[in-house]
Design a protein around this nucleic acid. Structure first.
Lengths: 299, 299
DNA sequence: CACTCTTACGGCACCCGTAAGAATC
DNA sequence: GATTCTTACGGGTGCCGTAAGAGTG
């Protein structure tokens, strides 16, 4: 019996498929399968029922799972308590919403690289809904996205909030500086796809205020949206701090709306059953760098 | 980091020397040393201070030790709770006093082999005092010997008692059937070496009753002593049940003493810091077979 | 047919044991 | 010099990844 086997078992048991678990551990799916088979041989009892389409834990496997979890937790504790390399090591795969990817991500990566030089970060950018699903399936260690998760297996903790403001090209709105029903009707509204936090926020605001935009244009890339807005294609929605920088260059002007958009709450989300010390450290690191409104330095 | 490394560290830390730990794990001392060095490399911190003659735990090592203990305990738990081979496996090295080796040992080995077919037993026969020392140094997992240990690191639990009786060749005592001061003076007293449980019991009895034997003859082999007694060389001391069988064949006769010899208490002894499930099982097995008075079947 | 897991197999890396070396008492 | 631990070095085993196979929905 080896730690590798137990690690393979743990991730296989808590991931959607063996393949997902294998990718997480950075081994081939074949290796992971063999590690588990080896463990089953050692314990002389099946841990997975391979009858169906996907392998599912047997009774013995379910008994073993908490033990394996404690075991890996102990291994973690050894590394952090004893190792004088006070840092974490290994890989950490996490999800980031598009907006956070363009504002907060560089700070976060820099912070973690300074704090834990031996930890390899693997950010994955996608919509919040997709990230939640990947979190649930075991592909990600954590995610930083807008709103709270509705899945019971996923825990969410508020980490910060972002204030959004409307933006448009100066030529589009001339001297107008507020969002009116008529403006919305006459111009396109450029947003992230449904499922993105900012879009959910916007939809809610529109419904509550009984407004409807004339044309909708969605794009899954916030930087592209900024370009579209600056080009006068339509109205956009951007974090406050970011928008200010764009406005200073005269690329866009900021518009006010009545009522103003509520702030969008960002949360740190992780699997409730994942008790590794890594997560507590990452939560701290996220909180320490939580400024989602900051303009991206490349702009 | 592997379980083998942690196992090596644990036994090295709790044994007198690396060599003892290596013998316990059935690997070469070189391998054990390298496993530990490897672990130190993984944790990036020294666990042993090799400055002196023997390696001694550093502060980090002392912090790691309880974690390693819990880890190995968990591994044990996995094997016993999950494995359908309901039994223990691996090696178990234990100490037995000479007397118990000739009476109780065969029963015990048979019992354990039936109950735990995958467990390899390695009995080591010696005097109680020597066994205690080996227990302390980490060479033995447990010992079954007379009396309680005085070492603080060793725990003792009463397991059973043995009643002794005097024996002599019929020709030596003629019609006399009791041990008198005169008989003791005139004939030799054949005992196990000092340090054996029965001998300690006897010394105490002699001192309390203010008696002194004429000649002493010690032998470290109880079977040999039986032969000597049967040959009329002197008086001997044997477990009650065993003596009865010898007496039935007419080889010896049983003598009574006033006051009679008190029973000799046998204990199961183990290292207080050894919390493996193996030990609890072995304690049960010892208790289940605790008949130290039974005649040896080979007689 | 797409997906998931297992089996076969060649290659490389790691770990073991023997034996010699360094250091302590 | 005896003991304890480390280092050097061949040899074998075990593990990995690629690729093909078997079974399910």
């Amino acid at each position: 019996m080896t730690l590798k086997q137990l690690e393979a078992f743990y991730w296989a048991a808590t991931s959607a498929t063996f393949l997902v678990a294998a990718q997480r551990l950075h081994v081939s799916q074949s290796s992971l399968s063999k590690r588990i088979a080896e463990l089953e041989g050692q314990l002389r009892c099946g841990l997975f029922d391979r009858g169906g389409h996907r392998a599912v834990l047997t009774e013995a496997g379910q008994k073993l799972l908490p033990l394996a979890r404690r075991m890996l937790g102990l291994a973690d504790e050894m590394r952090t308590q004893v190792a004088q390399s006070s840092g974490l090591q290994g890989h950490c795969r996490f999800g980031v919403g598009e907006l956070a990817a363009l504002t907060w991500l560089p700070d976060f990566v820099a912070f973690v690289r300074a704090e834990y030089p031996d930890l390899v970060l693997e950010p994955y950018v996608d919509l919040g809904a997709a990230l939640e699903q990947r979190l649930d399936s075991g592909e990600l260690d954590f995610a930083v996205i807008a709103g709270y998760s509705s899945r019971s297996a996923i825990a969410s903790e508020a980490i910060g909030e972002v204030r959004f403001a409307w933006a448009a090209a100066p030529a589009l709105v001339r001297r107008q500086r507020s969002v009116t029903a008529r403006l919305l009707q006459e111009t396109a509204l450029i947003t992230m796809p449904a499922g993105a936090g900012a879009t959910r926020l916007l939809e809610h605001w529109l419904a509550v205020n009984n407004l409807e935009p004339g044309r909708r244009l969605t794009c899954n890339n916030l930087a592209a949206i900024a370009g579209l807005v600056a080009a006068g294609v339509g109205l956009g929605l951007f974090p406050h701090g970011w928008l200010r920088q764009m406005a200073e260059r005269g690329a866009v002007v900021e518009l006010r709306s009545r009522p103003p958009l509520p702030p969008l709450e960002y949360t740190f989300q992780w699997r409730r059953d994942d008790t590794r010390g890594l997560l507590a450290r990452m939560r701290e690191a996220v909180a320490a760098t939580a400024d989602f409104s900051k303009p991206n330095p490349i702009w």
